[in-house]
Design a protein around this nucleic acid. Sequence first.
DNA 1: TACATTGATCGAACCGGTTCGACAAAGTCC
DNA 2: GGACTTTGTCGAACCGGTTCGATCAATGTA
Lengths: 335, 335
Amino acid sequence: MAITITDVARHAGVSPSTVSYALSGKRSISPSTRARIDEAILALGFTANAGARALATSQTMVIGLLTQFHQDEFAPAMLQYVLPVSDTAREFGYDILLVTETDATAALRRVTSAGMVDGVVLLDVVHEDPRLETLRAAAQPGALVGLPKRTEGLDVFDLDFGESARILVDHLYGLGHREIIVVSPPKHVFDRGGAYGWRFRDAALERAARYGIQIHPYFGEAQQPAIGQSMNAILDARPTATALIVHNDATIAALPSVLATRGTRVPEDLSVASLYSKDFGRAFSLPYTAVESSPDQLGQNAVRQLVRRIASPELAGAPVTRFIAPELTIRGSTA
Amino acid sequence: MAITITDVARHAGVSPSTVSYALSGKRSISPSTRARIDEAILALGFTANAGARALATSQTMVIGLLTQFHQDEFAPAMLQYVLPVSDTAREFGYDILLVTETDATAALRRVTSAGMVDGVVLLDVVHEDPRLETLRAAAQPGALVGLPKRTEGLDVFDLDFGESARILVDHLYGLGHREIIVVSPPKHVFDRGGAYGWRFRDAALERAARYGIQIHPYFGEAQQPAIGQSMNAILDARPTATALIVHNDATIAALPSVLATRGTRVPEDLSVASLYSKDFGRAFSLPYTAVESSPDQLGQNAVRQLVRRIASPELAGAPVTRFIAPELTIRGSTA
DNA sequence: TACATTGATCGAACCGGTTCGACAAAGTCC
DNA sequence: GGACTTTGTCGAACCGGTTCGATCAATGTA
């Protein structure tokens, strides 16, 4: 039914292998033959069958993207990671197989062992991620977004959360703040092993201790109305705190209305600094000074390295763990 | 390198075809042989190669999901459509190839003509969608989410936006409102051919005319701070309006803080009704009475029908255009 | 002029499954 | 007990590409 390379060969009066070589350029083809083949391809509307090509070359030109959508998580934040991965992959000629199954380990095994993908990108990697064992056993390489406990043999990309926290504390300390509230991701994120939570918090605490200033750490909530209640309780309990650092997507998104309702003015009554991406800030119109979380850079770097490793498993060198350098964007919410 | 069906056959002392039949169950296999094959599969850790199977059966067990991420659009709203499609597809044994390319028509042609997918789901279909021509020419079936001008030969799923608007107008009319502001999607959505925009607005206007009440239609904005400015201007210009209908994701998400800043109380000063999904409302903590936009149902129905059509192109019957019945959820923002 | 080299093309094997037809052994029927 | 069906298995062809080795003509070299 569909046009095959044999149809093209017949139409051009050559053998299928010649068409294949014309397509791949792996052997020289005379100009006249090439012209006839090109004409035939155009006339018949030929596109090489992906399955057949995958079988012959053991290359699918597909990258698996493994995401975990915890129902309790703030969904809008996820897309910022998915799109850059997809776009970067396409730049290199790869398509994206989106895997959202709850049983991520089984899904990973399925797509790798069936040879559906040439490599995988794991999003939202946690401290002791059960997927990593499966990934290490797979024939295909993988790239992680998120720092796990054991990185042996894996390419890892993440934001430098410790440095992010230090930058924010330094910034506020420099402005004269001596009592700061830090709102972390929800407790269940810590429990699940979302290491970015404690990497950020612990770095903030350590830095504050060095300066001899006070930090009050709290877990944030994941959803309204709990966010508003919790924030109100925290702010009421710490009336002398002059600054607030929020490391929590859902909370920062809700903060404008929470503070407006309280009548708290920023930065007059309270300095606010946070950690989120440009796009996230734009979508939620966030006016806060914040460290850029660079999901696009993370996705892009992960795919780049993955593609390199797919192309030449040996030449790509030793596995890397690379941290994105955090950058502070001043938006006037601190004083 | 990977385990093949021949390895399994050798290990079990049978021929490859017997293993294949044991796997598919298409011919009867003696219990003892079946046991040896099962044991061999387990021992060797065999998984059938997807490319080879696709080649032999011309079935990839992959569904293409074509999304359009307009940079000016409210990204967080997109995921609510992607996830249900992915989850439903997996229920039927299909994986999802996520296609986000800007040139959607070319991408659609690419994945269909290379036989990478067994069918496609098109999200965010507009009035005169250039992808439809390509889809009609493709060998694989497709299902649309969003109503285009011409539905011939296509399975189409959408919310009944006209009915949604009527329900909201009826609701407010019943509560005694006689002057209502309607905020539509941004103008560029109309220009692009997002028919849901005018289907909703025109139905609202028509209904209001029937009741002899006043409706002031406005285009909404897509981003802050334009949203806030525009909403303030609109509310200032219509001080006698007692109710507001918002058909615009970005605007409704920003509305709580806009109204809080103005000091407008809901529903005392202004009744507010809208159109959004449960999940969206939860993510943004929206307290408004609204028609449920049911992205999960749309995605699920689209995949269901697509799978049916893939399984038996003839038996699936004539193409359908099905509208989800809108349902009003009272949340107390109207009085 | 004889011989090695290069360029262009073809045939055949192969990738790893599925499926059709054949066939022997076992079971059913009269 | 012979004819007929059913059951279980195998071999071979096929799906649609890629790639290796061989062939042959044209060109370069001694």
